[in-house]
């Protein structure tokens, strides 16, 4: 059976390598200065979907909710072998917490039509909540398997998945339709094909191309559909900032007090002094 799959992906600021260049004077990170990347776990989710497609056949639609610049995530996913891409962007989607995000994604998935499997990364590195996947599954009223490492068996509607738990793993058996969140212990993402990459590099959204180019872009399949509030068909009051039930009361810069530790030099004498002090105070 050929499976209809949706893969949810997100563009995130790369928080993995925060260097001094992106720190403001007060020690906070200038988010805009960080490079935008595909959320790492989402690439593992796409790989799992591509593997299902390779083995059993099917089609993968990749969706990303974010600003227009998030089209880059879709270009990347198409270069790796996804079949369709949809950019979910609207000013009304901005400022969404995980709940509001899940409303938009649920509506977009339903709008996209019947599906068998939905994949997303375990968590996004900019918030680490791991909440959106389960929240979408609940709204779609389908089961979920979180922290998935591998699909070990798939035949028609039957599926066996290995998922990580504290200090081990579980093998869990059930039926699709299903939403799966994938960890970075799953199979490594394949690289984009160079040919596809060259092709998809040119992909644009309709609003960003000149009208005279539109016909040609459409013909070559390079126009990526953009769904806003109207296309997704989600009520404005449950999207974005308005639909968020967690509100930020305040954000505090943690001022590190001008506390000076007692310092020791790195010489043998310096270190000995430290060790002796710890011993004298019965700490070690």
């Amino acid at each position: 059976m050929a499976y209809r799959m949706v893969c949810l992906m997100k563009q995130v600021p790369d928080t993995r390598n925060i260097t001094a260049d992106v720190l403001r004077e007060d020690g906070t990170v200038n988010r805009q200065a960080l490079p935008a990347v595909v959320n790492p776990d989402d690439l593992f989710a796409l790989e799992m979907a591509l593997d299902v497609k390779d083995k059993y056949g099917g089609e993968i639609t990749v969706m990303s909710m974010g600003p227009p610049a998030a089209i880059e995530v879709l270009r990347d996913a198409m270069s790796r072998g996804a079949d369709h891409a949809i950019l979910l962007t609207d000013k009304k989607f901005a400022g969404a917490d995980t709940l509001a995000t899940s409303h938009v994604l649920e509506s977009a998935i339903r709008k996209n039509g019947p599906f068998n499997l939905i994949f997303c990364g375990r968590q996004a590195i900019d918030g680490d909540t791991a909440q959106v996947g389960p929240q979408v599954a609940e709204k779609l009223d389908i089961p979920q398997v979180t922290f998935a490492e591998a699909i070990e068996f798939l035949d028609q509607d039957d599926i066996v998945i290995r998922r990580a738990i504290e200090g081990g793993f579980e093998r869990i058996r059930g039926r699709i339709p299903l939403l799966v969140t994938v960890t970075n212990a799953a199979a490594n993402p394949r690289p984009p094909s160079i040919k596809r990459k060259m092709f998809w590099k040119k992909a644009q959204t309709r609003s960003s191309v000149q009208s005279e180019e539109e016909g040609e872009m459409l013909e070559r399949g390079l126009l990526i559909p953009v769904w806003g509030l109207a296309e997704v068909g989600c009520a404005a009051e449950i999207c974005g900032f308005q639909g968020s039930e967690t509100w930020i009361k305040n954000v505090e810069n943690v001022k590190l007090t001008a506390h000076e530790p007692k310092s020791f030099d790195t010489s043998e004498t310096g270190i000995k002094e430290l060790i002796n002090e710890l011993i004298n105070e019965h700490i070690i």
Partner: peptide, 14 residues
């Protein structure tokens, strides 16, 4: 919260 030395206080009022 994301971004160095920042602590966020979050509420769910409604």
């Amino acid at each position: 919260a994301f971004g160095g030395n920042v602590i966020a206080t979050i509420v769910t009022p409604e």
